[in-house]
Each structure stands twice: as C-alpha cells, then as structure tokens.
Write a protein that binds this DNA or RNA. Sequence first.
DNA 1: GGTATAAGTTACCGACTGGTAACATACCTG
DNA 2: CAGGTATGTTACCAGTCGGTAACTTATACC
Lengths: 213, 213
Amino acid sequence: MSSDTTGISRDDCGPGPLPAGGKSRVRDRIFETACELFYRHGIHGVGVDAIAAEAGSNKMSFYRSFASKDALVAEYLREQEREYWAWWDAAVARHPDDPRRQVEALFEAQLEIAKSNECRGCALGNAAAEITDDEDELSTLVRAYKDKVRKRLHAMARAMGARDAEVLGDALMLLLDGGYFTRLIFPLGSGPISAALSAVRTLIEAHLPKSPA
Amino acid sequence: MSSDTTGISRDDCGPGPLPAGGKSRVRDRIFETACELFYRHGIHGVGVDAIAAEAGSNKMSFYRSFASKDALVAEYLREQEREYWAWWDAAVARHPDDPRRQVEALFEAQLEIAKSNECRGCALGNAAAEITDDEDELSTLVRAYKDKVRKRLHAMARAMGARDAEVLGDALMLLLDGGYFTRLIFPLGSGPISAALSAVRTLIEAHLPKSPA
DNA sequence: GGTATAAGTTACCGACTGGTAACATACCTG
DNA sequence: CAGGTATGTTACCAGTCGGTAACTTATACC
C-alpha cells in the first residue's frame, strides 16, 4: 500500500547506513525546512528556490537530493503522517486498555497542540484543500490517511463498547477535523476547539450502555 | 498536470443577442465562471486566462471588468458568503421560533448539499487554507465570516435554552466545519458527515434542561 | 446612419517557477 | 597525495501567470 513511486525511498531519516558512510546533511536540512515552510505557507505557496535558500543551500543541491518538487511534497506528506501517528500513539499509550480515556487523551493532546502559535491545523487536510487537481498520488495519500483516522476512531468506539460505534467514531472524527479546520481561522486558544473535549465526553456518554457512576 | 484546455462551453451559443436587457453580460459570465472554477480548483489553481477563456471571453475583457485577480477573489469570497447566508437563512426559516429544529435543519441541509458531486466543502474555509500569506483582506474576510457563523450558533444554542450555550454552539461549529473539511476527502455520501445529525441531536439533548419525553 | 461603447484579438512585458547544464570547490577517505 | 563524493555557484531554459497596449470588430442607442 505504501509503495513509493517517487524513486526516493528513504524511510529512515536518522544517521544510519548511508551508502557512502557520509551523512547527507544537506538533504535533511532541506527536507526539514521544506516541511516547515509547506506547513506554514502551504504547498503552492513555497517554491523550491525558497526552500533551498532557507535551508542555506541552493536549488541545484535540492535537485541532487529530490527528483522533483512533487516528490518532495509526497515525502513531506508521508513524513507528516508518520509524525501524526507517532503523536497519536503517544497520546493513546498513556491509557492502555481504556479506549474511552484514550479518546479523551487524544482530544486533550489536540487542544494542547492547538495552543501553539505555529499550529495551522492538519497538514494533510490542508494539503487536500490545495491539491484539488485530480486523482494523483497526493490525493490518494491524504485519502488513505483520513481513512485510517476514521477506522481507528471506529475501532476505539467499538472497543469502549459503544452502541453505534461507527456513528460515534464518525462524530468524533467530525469534532477532530472541525478542530483542525477552525484552527486555521481562530487564533490560539480563542476558537471553538476548546469545546471539543466536552462534546467528546457527552457523545461518548450517550453512546455507552448505562453504567453506574 | 492535467491542464485541461477549457473547451468553450457556452450554453447559449446561438444567433441573436445574448440575454436581452442584461447590462454587463461579459462581466457576469466571467464572474460566474470564476466562482465555479475557484470553488472547484482552488484560488491558486485557476488563472485569469483560464477563467476568461472558460467564460468564452478573454483576458483583456476580464481586466476591463475587474481591477485585478485579487479584486476578483475578494468579490468571489463575498459572493460565497452571501450565498451561504442565504442558504442558512432558508434552512432556518422553515422552523421559526424553534431554534432546536433550526439547528437540526441546518445540518440536514448540509448533509443534502454534501451529497452533491460538486460539493467541495466550505468555500471560505478552503480559501483560508490557501491564503496563508498574511493579514490581508482575504484573511480578514474569512475570519469575520467564521466569527459570524460561530456567533449565530451561540445565539441559537442560547435561544433553545441550553446550559453552556457557548460550549454547545462551539461543538456544533466543530461538527459543521468537520463536515465541510472531511467532505474534501471522502467522496459523496460515504464520509463521516452522515453522523453529524445524530451527534447534533445528542449534544443538544445533553445541553437542554431535563424535559419530559 | 452614425457614433459611443462593449467586447474580441494579438502581441507583448516582467516576474516567477520548476528544472537543467557546466563548472568550481570543499571534504573525507584510501 | 589522489580521487571520489557532496556541495556551492552561475547561468540558463521553458512555461506560466498577472497585467497592459493597441487595434479591430460588434453592438446599442440616438
């Protein structure tokens, strides 16, 4: 599923067994810079020249490490997804075997992130708003990611024994993505995202079989 | 890069004058076309040349009617907002003096729209994902719009006598925008947006003072 | 009919962007 | 030191995009 058609297939970004033994510092610097700039200014809004320059390099070095801007974008999206799941797993791991607390922890973590000044919502989702062209690789990537989010929420709702687990999971997803979306507009902690956790609790409560407090 | 050369698709390519009595027909045609294309392919994704051509006109005629692309974009956003409130008011008007049913009708109407093949979520919100540059006029416009949505939801929550009306209103906004956002990804009726109405009802119920069934 | 105005046509400009060629330099390793 | 590898530098190409100039044609209205 995660086949890499871009020709660049380094999943491992750390210092490791690179062919010549030398660290590809430039490539990493460029990539990090690209991730930042893409997230901040959007994909269309940043050119390869700007990326290379901001990374203290130049366009030619950029094209020695990346086949094309599209390839970089694809890698950016994959990296964002990787980080996202790492973040997700970390939030969830704090409450093993307690799916209800896991979901709450997820939204708590989201709220925490949303307080950051640099937060601009969901990188993958924002990309979807930009990549409107067609059924290209990027769209497929984002779609697969969102599908996975949804399935996980379904699974968590099921695991907590909810009635209509799919409906609950979908509702949670709406709240989650609504938080990301509105975060694009409302500055820092002033947006409606602060109400997400309360809504999450209410919805879960309503979907759980009656239980003694 | 599927640069589809826009086939001239004039609906009324026939003899005789165009819709008689119309004043600036070209301007209107261009503007309508621009709205469609902006919504479908994003603002960055459509050039003035493509707009003019798709409208059966040309760039020069475009610039006789619009001061710049930015001016057109601003007008596009204002028009989208106008249409949005018209849609909102129509949905709400069916249940005067019943804010609870009004909110439900709003989400019913959203679900209805989301079923359309042409639906690409919230035009203003998508624009916000694109316009990341700075505090320009466009951003301000979108922010004001989202603020108004939020305030209206607050007011409706208050009108239905909800406890924590602001929290409920914010939660509704998350569901609403979550629906728009996810609609960008999930095709037609298969997305989580179909769970919105159920969540809306649950949340409202939970925020309303206990009432007899 | 004649004239003002709206609209189409062609050509062009400057800026920018993705991408490449050719060459120069650093650096690490054998 | 030799030599390969990674990187920097400059220049350039082709395409696109926003925007304009100058001119021609069609339309409307008196």
